[in-house]
């Protein structure tokens, strides 16, 4: 991960902006694309929209062995947002026993890590409490 990468996706990362393919409805996140990753249509004009911070767990693991600097056990999941976009995310404020495929989660803006003296913010996922 480099700072230029963070800069390139900074707006989508902060506002949860997804980009929908007009041909197959697949949602790209966080990158705006002109070639669709799902249907291969190119060029396509993907329209950006702010996604709701809600989704469900497609699958998860609990990381037990990580390098220094990471707290374990660390639950990690593939999340599918309600609008269809997918991303990997850390799960917080959740008992390990609660985790299951299909678990409804809510994205929350948190500190992720420090890099080059900068604090990197992004979303983590907690059990969905609001609607």
């Amino acid at each position: 991960m480099t700072t230029p990468h963070q800069w390139r996706i900074s707006e989508s990362n902060a506002k949860l902006i997804g980009y929908r393919c007009p041909k197959c409805s697949w949602v790209s996140f966080p990158e705006k694309k002109r070639a669709c990753k799902r249907c291969g249509s190119a060029p396509v004009e993907m329209m950006g929209f702010v996604m709701k911070p809600f989704g469900k767990i497609v699958s998860f693991v609990v990381q037990h062995r990580l390098p220094e600097g990471f707290e374990t056990p660390l639950p990690l999941a593939i999340i599918e947002f309600e609008e269809g976009a997918r991303a990997a995310g850390h799960i917080i404020d959740c008992k390990l026993e609660e985790l299951h495929v299909g678990f409804e989660v809510e994205a929350e803006y948190r500190i992720m890590y420090e890099e080059n003296g900068l604090t990197m913010y992004s979303y983590k996922f907690k059990p969905r409490r609001s609607h």
Binding site: M1, H5, Q6, I9, N13, F29, P30, Q63, L66, P67, F70, L74, L76, A87, A88, G89, H90, M112, Y113, E115, M120, S122
Partner: peptide
């Protein structure tokens, strides 16, 4: 492990 979103962790 420090990536944002894609393959994060």
């Amino acid at each position: 492990l420090k990536r944002l979103w894609m393959g994060r962790g």
